[in-house]
Nucleic acid binder design. Sequence first.
DNA 1: CCTACCGATCGGTAGG
DNA 2: CCTACCGATCGGTAGG
Lengths: 186, 186
Amino acid sequence: MTQRKKEIYIQAANLFKEKGYPAASMRDLADRVGIEASSLYSHIKSKEQILIEICQSCGDLFNKGIDEILNVEDSLKFKLFRIIDLHLNIAQNRPSSIVVFTDEWKHLPESALLDFRQSRKSYENKFEQLIKLGQESGVFKKEMKAKLIVNMIISSLKWTLNKKETLNSDKTRDEIKLFIHNAVIT
Amino acid sequence: MTQRKKEIYIQAANLFKEKGYPAASMRDLADRVGIEASSLYSHIKSKEQILIEICQSCGDLFNKGIDEILNVEDSLKFKLFRIIDLHLNIAQNRPSSIVVFTDEWKHLPESALLDFRQSRKSYENKFEQLIKLGQESGVFKKEMKAKLIVNMIISSLKWTLNKKETLNSDKTRDEIKLFIHNAVIT
DNA sequence: CCTACCGATCGGTAGG
DNA sequence: CCTACCGATCGGTAGG
């Protein structure tokens, strides 16, 4: 990946985040990169392809991240905290891409949409298994369905997207973990 | 508001939800209503105006809803549960509009955007005051900032949008309330 | 990487 | 509510 191509992907993520994918034009993007719109196509295949790659790479970050957490020997409680940090770290390190991944995936073309849903499903299933394991061993509360707990946790973290100071504050991160700790740990 | 105009707003909300505002065309909308695109403009002023009214009316639902809850004499804990039901009820009763309100507000024109942010801010401030009151009286946990609690709660409920069976299930609603109860009630 | 350009589609108007 | 149409803009290609 050349420097120019990287620059295009970075600016595309910024632009898609700000305007939304359909409202972001290739001419907007070219302006930000500092070249003509037609010149973009020497580096990229299509507008769609940029969206596909942004969404795929974010999905991979989540799945690789959770795999690493689950494969290390730790308490289930600590693994849950590491998953929370995984979400916050991705938001911190890829502030534009993560918003595109979260808000613009519905504009993916059909085949990439199937991949996206599969990747997300795979992630949620791993997360759910962790919760179920904790419920069986008495670490996590049993009164709520594991799938609901996963949905509540993932959803609850999304307000932090785009909130740089929140993501940078260890104190705020601790409060987020405390909220979820109170919600699910026995 | 004539029947035809109502129909246009309903179909517009459905369409904006499905495709996103920028990708939804007035020709799409006209097809769903069963008239020509140009005929839409006998009933509505512009595409933008539809978005503005959808977002305004949802904002009003939240603000009127919370005002009613806060003005009735109830325990703070019960008021919190009523706020949760307010969110779930709006999602249940206006399944398309609420998604447009949540996901498409950034496409509002400048002046409407100011109104939108003000309405949302107003809602969040009232919610925050309730949490602070509860923290002072020892009903809600003090270890987390009130604003963070509000953000976590509002965000945590958003996964239920578009999940009709979740919104229709009293049992699931109870689990959602239990999650939040555990998180914030002493 | 640029100039020049394509067909398609956009929101919206004129006039009836 | 329709036919006919407008200028603007879209993603993308040809050719150099």
